[in-house]
Nucleic acid binder design. Structure first.
Lengths: 230, 230
DNA sequence: ATGAAAGCCGAGCATTCACTCGGGTTTCAT
DNA sequence: ATGAAACCCGAGTGAATGCTCGGCTTTCAT
């Protein structure tokens, strides 16, 4: 059950009296595992977890299936490793708290160039709702965390008068998370007519007060014209 | 490629000179196929298309796998038949055009009693984004139709002054579809903390003007308190 | 009633699946 | 340098998959 990436202190503890024992991964191992995980992103992203095979991943990584299983003993452990890998190297969008909306829209625009990633999360979050799916707990935790984070940011914006009166941060936070999730799935099915950043901006413009006039009076922000038609 | 449900006129044409030929389905066939399709909803809903097997469906329907394949020659055709079956018997929510929001919220509340159905659509819409998935075209069409329908309803509401100024029906329509889709997936992962009707009502309250004061002035509708916390 | 088609199923079939085994090659601390 | 562990792989293994085949039973228009 030990993930490949977890620091195994016992390997590193160089006891003088311990003449022999496990030596830990070699220098090239990290790079090889990165190759495998990148291949797994593509396979699980394009075929899903149930639909993709470890043979597919091994082929795409240019190694034998047996070697893959040496690094990640089971398919389920490989999937968990993929998700943790993507979390580790994901672009930690900086952005000040005041630029909440801009940060989200910018991230959505950035994602348009990473269809593999979007596919991975869309396919797996749906699959993960099934019984005993190895990624189920990951997505339960992930969505709960996101809802909490967004609600918190919106509460802060409310405290400085940037949230439109009548908007409950504990409703709007989960709304952003769900909207983002849903619109990305639709974008994968219909890339030409669905505008992910546009839809998100449309909602954020609805609930936020523009920075200049913190005293909110009416919904006078310009209509958002998205390419989303029909 | 002929779906089981399509009316096959050639069977019914009783030509006097045709002494023998295909006779069409027997009386009990419709009921049997309904059993199979109900079983398939549960299997594909709880395990996904790739994760569920036709053996599972046959077992749950209480028939042999071979008999199932007599009625639905391939697994892919079974899936398509399931989706069309659910469309055919789906509760055609009446509701006047003016009661747009109420109709949606009522449908969402109704869905809480049909977790099998919600699972089916959530799991499959994610899976369907993968290459060559037999349900891909179904979901492409379905989402496009829903976006168009909702945008149309909102355009009508705008024409009678019930849409908040500044809200573009062509953005809000797709937003409702995506939000619904996303929040249902999260509900399946976290049924106790996610309130599907509440989140939808929160958005609809934001974009619609209450019936009584068609002259909209501020966001003075009460804050929506959902059970959605953290 | 009869007989042809529909309905139904046990027994396979070829393939793919995740995973194991045994043994070779490479790395690297000593 | 050396030797133990890490790395790597060919060749399986057993189970499950979607689907076919051949033949029996049931339905029902004639």
């Amino acid at each position: 059950m030990l993930g490949f990436h977890e620091i195994r202190l016992d390997y590193m503890t160089k006891k003088a009296n311990a003449r022999s024992g496990p030596r830990g991964p070699y220098a090239k191992t990290a790079e090889r595992q990165r190759q495998i995980l990148e291949a797994a992103v593509e396979v699980f992203g394009s075929r899903g977890y149930n639909g993709g095979s470890i043979q597919d991943v091994a082929d795409r990584a240019g190694i034998s299936q047996t070697t893959l299983l040496h690094h990640f003993p089971t398919k389920a452990q490989l999937l968990v490793a993929v998700l943790e890998y993507r979390d580790r190297i994901s672009t930690s969008t900086p952005g000040t708290r005041e630029r909440f909306a801009e940060t989200i829209v910018r991230q959505a625009e950035h994602n348009e160039g990473l269809p593999h990633l979007v596919e991975l999360y869309s396919v797996l979050s749906g699959e993960a709702t099934t019984e005993d799916h190895p990624a189920r707990n990951y997505f339960v935790q992930r969505f709960a965390r996101l809802r909490k984070e967004y609600s918190g940011e919106l509460r802060y914006l409310a405290s400085i008068g940037r949230l439109r009166p009548g908007v409950d941060p504990d409703v709007a936070g989960p709304t952003i998370v769900a909207l983002w999730e849903g619109i990305q799935t639709e974008w994968l099915l219909n890339p030409d007519t669905v505008d992910v950043p546009g839809i998100l901006k449309g909602y954020l413009d609805l609930i936020l007060v523009p920075e200049e006039n913190a005293g909110w009076s009416s919904g006078a922000t310009d209509t958002v014209h998205a390419k989303s038609r029909q």
